[in-house]
């Protein structure tokens, strides 16, 4: 019984961790290039809504996901333009993007409320193989998931590889650390920043699509429920490293899923509900202590607009 319980908490934890993971990895890229985008929540919900609408119309989850990525990307370009070309305040622009996304989807989503998503459009977990999924405790969590979840891990690993093991990765990181130096070496700082912000938007859109296509198939207002903010926190916790983001996102998902199993032990659900947020603060403090110890922090030029020849 106990093993079954843990197995199911792990299984759900990985599922709820998936949108966090995609959004976090996207934000890592944006921040690595020097753009702080606090509008993840807004881009995510735009993606979630787009995926639902397209999924309903086409019954194709992959098309829906692609559309969500495109929508998230489009939304991120507003932020990119304000941050990069207009050199506006990135904190406020991100907040504006979140507000705008929540408002837009509430307005556009009115007629979709109560509509069901066709079964073919949903992403449903199924075992890779019965034997593997039957492994006690971890089998279900690791081998009985949906393709999207595996894809998100693959994307994260791939993006980690790009960031740390390729020339492109060096370029991106140098733009976030010292754009003037990168510029002097012939790197197009604006292009890199636009590309990274756009990638962040696309991944946030995909993260949203996982919510409406798999996690909570259907459309209700505010369906992202603050996940975008948690992704911002996880970015810092992961020390801007996509591999650590995998661990952080799943840890977060598992803790969230596990709180209810403490209710029968007499804990107040309200205080249990606060645990994920307490954990976020703890994670941030731990992450910060870690960055201090290793003497590595946020990208040096994070949030600072770049203008050639200007300091």
């Amino acid at each position: 019984m106990q093993a079954e319980l843990i197995s199911s908490v792990l299984w759900i934890g990985l599922r709820s961790g998936t949108p966090l993971l995609l959004a976090t990895v996207g934000e890592i890229y944006a921040e690595r290039s020097g753009i702080l985008n606090l509008g993840i929540e807004g881009m995510m919900i735009i993606g979630a809504f787009t995926a639902f609408a397209v999924g309903q119309a086409t019954s194709s989850p992959w098309l829906a996901m692609a559309a969500a990525a495109a929508a998230g990307l489009a939304a991120s370009l507003i932020h990119a333009f304000i941050s990069i070309h207009l050199r506006g305040n990135q904190v406020v622009s991100g907040l504006a993007l979140t507000m705008f996304g929540l408002g837009l989807t509430s307005v556009a989503g009115g007629t979709f409320v109560g509509a069901a998503l066709p079964r073919e459009a949903r992403i449903i977990p199924s075992p890779l193989s019965e034997e593997l999924a039957a492994i006690p405790v971890i089998g279900k969590a690791l081998f009985d998931q949906d393709p999207f979840l595996y894809l998100s891990i693959l994307i994260s690993v791939l993006l980690w590889f790009v960031l740390y093991k390729t020339k492109l990765g060096i370029v991106i990181r140098s733009v976030g650390e010292n754009p003037a130096a990168a510029d002097a070496l012939g790197v197009n700082v604006y292009a890199v920043r636009y590309a990274c912000t756009a990638l962040g938007g696309a991944l946030a859109g995909m993260a949203g699509s996982y919510i409406t296509l798999s996690l909570r198939p259907g459309w209700v207002e505010n369906i992202t429920a603050g996940r975008g903010w948690i992704a911002v926190a996880l970015t810092i916790f992961a020390l801007w490293d996509p591999l650590k983001a995998i661990a952080g996102s799943y840890l977060f998902g598992i803790v969230e899923a596990g709180t209810y199993n403490l209710q029968p032990l007499g804990f107040s659900q309200w205080l249990l509900n606060a645990i994920p947020y307490v954990l976020t603060v703890v994670i941030l403090v731990a992450g910060a202590t870690e960055t201090m110890r290793k003497k590595m922090g946020a990208p040096a030029a994070l949030g600072v607009p770049y203008v050639r020849g200007e300091k």
């Binding site: 319980l5 908490v9 709820s16 996690l215 899923a257 209810y260 029968p264």
Partner: peptide, 11 residues
């Protein structure tokens, strides 16, 4: 959803 899943995991 978390509450429902937690109930299901208890049988």
């Amino acid at each position: 959803a978390d509450a429902a899943e937690s109930l299901i995991s208890e049988g």
